[in-house]
Design a protein around this nucleic acid. Sequence first.
DNA 1: TTGTAAGCGTTATCAG
DNA 2: CTGATAACGCTTACAA
Lengths: 323, 323
Amino acid sequence: MANINEIAKIAGVSSATVSRVINRNGYVSDDTRAKVEAVIKKLDYVPNRNAVFLKTGTTKMLGIIAPDFSDSLTVFLRSFTLAAQKEGYNVTLFITGGDKQKELDAFEMLRHKQLDGLVLVIRLNDWDQLEPFTKYGPIVTWQRVDSKHIPSVFMNHYQGYMLGLEHLYASGCRNIANLYGSTRGLNTKSRMQAYADFCQKYKLDPKLEQQFKGLNSIEDGEAILDWYAEQSDKPDGFATSSDAVAAGLVAEARRRGYNIPTDFSVVGFDNIEISRLLDITTIDYPIAKQAQNAFTIIFNQLLYKNLPLLPLEFDLIKRKTTR
Amino acid sequence: MANINEIAKIAGVSSATVSRVINRNGYVSDDTRAKVEAVIKKLDYVPNRNAVFLKTGTTKMLGIIAPDFSDSLTVFLRSFTLAAQKEGYNVTLFITGGDKQKELDAFEMLRHKQLDGLVLVIRLNDWDQLEPFTKYGPIVTWQRVDSKHIPSVFMNHYQGYMLGLEHLYASGCRNIANLYGSTRGLNTKSRMQAYADFCQKYKLDPKLEQQFKGLNSIEDGEAILDWYAEQSDKPDGFATSSDAVAAGLVAEARRRGYNIPTDFSVVGFDNIEISRLLDITTIDYPIAKQAQNAFTIIFNQLLYKNLPLLPLEFDLIKRKTTR
DNA sequence: TTGTAAGCGTTATCAG
DNA sequence: CTGATAACGCTTACAA
C-alpha cells in the first residue's frame, strides 16, 4: 500500500509537505496542496495510523473494564461510547469474567500506550495495585473510591435507597425485606446503613433474618420466592438493589399466583427497560449521565480542558408494584 | 519511560537481544536472558505496542459495527468479545446510529491498519461500497450477503419462523397475525415467505391486513394492543420476529387484562432472557454461537488456519404463551 | 512556502 | 548465541 513517501515522490514534493497537507498545519501553497490532494485521491492513500500513534503517542482509543455484561453495564457502555465517538474516540471493551489478571491486562494497555484512558466499572484488584497506573493516563471509576488520583462518577446510593424505603413506608409497609447486591461493594454498605437509619427513624424491627446479600441476577430474584413461601412471618415489602433482581422476584411471584402489591410491594433500582416492562416501581439511577460524565472527566484530563459535568440525582418512579 | 535501548544498555547487550528475550524467538543464553529479564523487571519496562504495531502491521484489535444497541446485539457482542479475548484480541464497538458515514469510518480504520478485522452486524451502505474494503482485512457479517468476498454467519430465518408457525397451528391457531421486523432486511422476506408457504400448506387465508412490518422494540409490541382492541375479527395467534416485540405485546396484554394463551397465543424469536422472564414461547436463535463463528472466520483468515465452525440450528422453546 | 533529516520504539535480516 | 543496522510510516524542528 502506498505510503507518504510515495505520494511525495509522485506529487514532486517532500513527505513533510504531504504531511502538512494531510494535517492542515504549517503553510502550503494552494497549488501544492491541490497537487498533493490529487495524488492522494488517485492512489487512494490513507496514513498508517500506527505510525501516527507511534509518533504522537496517542491512540484515540479508550477502554472500559467490567466483570461481565449486565443491563446497567449496557446502558453505561452505550452512553459512554456515544459520547466518546462524538469527540473522535473509540471504545474497546474488556470483559474480565472476574479474572483479576484480565483487569490488570487492560491497565497494562494503558501503560503500553495502546489506550488513552480507562473506565473501571467494578474493581477487582486492590486500589493500591491499580493506582500506580494513573501516571500512564486518565482513569475513572463508577464505584466510589477514596483516592486522590482516581476520579469517580459514583453516586451515593444511600439517598436513592432511602427514597425507596420511604415510599414503601408511606404506602403501608412495616415489614420490609432487603435484597442487597454484591457483598463487597460500598453500595451495599450504604444501602444497609440507609435501612438501619430507616428502622431507627420509624422504630421498626430491622429483622436480620430478612436481609439478603449477594443477589444480582434475575434468577437470584426468582429464587427468593422459595424462601418467601416458607415463611410464616412474611414481609410485606421488598427493597432491592437492582431491577433485575426485582424483575425476577415479580415475575416468579406472578407465576406462582401471588398478587403484587396486595400480597407484598416491590421496589426495584436502576429504572432500566425491564422495570418499565414489568411495571415495577423503581428508583431512577441516571447511569447514562454518569457515563457521559465519565467521558467528560477523561476528555478534560486528556486535553487539559474543563468541561462541566452533568448534575446527578436519584428519582422515585412510581409504578404498579407498590401501593 | 524506558525503551528497549535503555534496557539493552543497562543489561550490557544489544536491543536485538532484548527483543529476543521479550518475544522468545531466536537463541538467547540462559545467562543473558536472566540478566535482561532482571533489568526489565527493575525498570518496570513494557514494549510500546504502537511501535510493535507499526513494525508488524497488526493491532490485535477487531471491530464490530452496529446501528444501535439491542438485546440481541448485546448477546452477540458478549460472545464475540469473549471468543476474541481468548485469542488475545480486543474488540472495539462502533455504534453508527444509522449514520452511513460512521459505518464507513469503521471500515476506514481497517484500511488505516488500526483494526485487524471487522464484523458488520447490520449493513447501512451498499455492498459494492463496502466490498472493496475486504482487501484490507477479514470482514464478516451477520446478515445474509450474496458476495463471494464477505463471509456471513447468517442463518436463514425461514426454517426458524416456520417452526413457530407450525407450533401455533398445532396448538389450534387458525388466524395468525405476523409482526415482522425491519422492512429492508432479508430476514423479513424469509419470514414472509414462510408465512405464505404456511398458509398455502394449511389452506389458510393469509390476511394481509394483519401483517405488520418494521416492528422492533418493546414499545412497538405494546402498541399492537391498540390495534388488537379495535378488531372485530381478532387473531388467535401472533408470530413475531423478536422477543422484544413479543415481550411488549405480552406485557401490555396482561396489563389490559387479556389472558394468554386463552385469548391469543404468542411466539417470540431469539430466546433471550426477557422471553424466559415473561414465560414466552419462543424460537431459540443461537446468537452466541453465531458470534463465535464470526470470530473463528476472522481468526482463520488472519492466521491462515482452518478451525471448524459450530453447527447452527433453530429450536422451539415451548413456554406459557402458547397452548 | 518547502525540503532535510532526525527521531518515535520496535522487529528482523545478516553477519560474525 | 549475539550485535549492527536497516526498515516500518509518520511528524516536526530546523534550514533554506
